[in-house]
Design a protein around this nucleic acid. Structure first.
Lengths: 170, 170
DNA sequence: CGGATTAGCTAGTAAAACTAGCAAACCGGG
DNA sequence: CCCGGTTTGCTAGTTTTACTAGCTAATCCG
């Protein structure tokens, strides 16, 4: 699938060359990674009848659940960057599929609280957990220094990216 | 938009705590960045009448062009991981928009060669270049050491991710 | 209290992917 | 040489999924 993306090896191959080449290498590696991740999500998603955004939303909800946080519709909306209407339909889709439950919030009667079902934990969980675990193994091989560098870099890049092309849905 | 992703600040805030916390911080930062990038691509794309995959394809073609390689329909198909039918329509869309030209291949008469037009270079270029430039500025502030660390990490992660989804959860 | 804002929903529309299936060109064994 | 199998790109019709517009109910705040 993405195995045919020829440019991928060049960044690694050049990973120790001239000073100007570095910056583009990083960008290219980042870009290649993004493509690989999207492809992975597509594989995983279609394998269990979910779209890319459905999967992202589900992971988001599971992550929140694991962290003891409840998730609301608006959170998903903001996380995915789609409209609130799309989010409604997406959540109904996940509910009908038996992955989540929607209960009215106890504190805000306009809002809903989203819970992942046992199905989502047991069926999706392993699937995502496997990915998560393999990725964790990679990150845990990093030194403290390296981890800090990478985290700082990614946060910087996120802020940069957030400022490109301003638009506000809903 | 993604500025409201509440979990985002935690990775940065914790970026100096325990050694085990680092690994998850890196993963979280990576996730958050991915979401931000996808949102950015969505914004940029709709701002110039192109979808996410259109933009990815165009960048792929421009990259190939810059590297002296010609692009065929099948290459785009494999790169994006979509069906050949979708690729056909996508390319026709880009052609009608004046971003690419499709010429019959000289060596294989079934195949076509895709060329980016001056419009794509001059019109899309700046748009993408702006993003690229801003991101470049970020990457260029890195030291050699940091750049190497990040590139190595991203490449490792890509390899990990490439192996996910070719397996069965049950 | 009363206007403004926020959360979620419905309805209808548009974009973009999919499947199925086709014609032309290419490749390779007999 | 030639005939079956494969590859490339295409059309047609369908499905998925996000969008816009606009609504109701709840909450916030001056």
């Amino acid at each position: 699938m993405t195995d045919s993306f020829d440019s991928s090896e060049s960044a690694e191959a050049r990973a120790g060359s001239g000073p100007e080449a570095r910056a583009t290498d990083v960008l290219e590696a980042l870009h290649v990674y993004s493509a690989a991740e999207a492809a992975m999500r597509r594989r995983t998603g279609t394998a269990m009848g979910l779209g890319e955004n459905d999967l992202l939303a589900l992971r988001f909800i599971l992550d929140n659940h694991a962290g003891g946080r409840t998730t609301a519709s608006k959170d998903v909306t903001r996380y995915l960057g789609i409209s609130s209407a799309s989010t409604t339909v997406l959540l109904h889709r996940l509910e009908k599929g038996g992955f989540i439950e929607r209960r009215p919030s106890s504190t805000d009667r306009r809002s809903i609280e989203i819970f992942a079902t046992a199905t989502a934990e047991g069926d999706t969980g392993p699937m995502l957990a496997l990915a998560q675990e393999q990725m964790s193994m990679t990150t845990e091989s990093l030194t403290v220094e390296e981890a800090r560098t990478i985290t700082k870099f990614l946060t910087m890049m996120r802020k940069t990216v957030d400022q490109i092309g301003h638009r506000r849905p809903n």
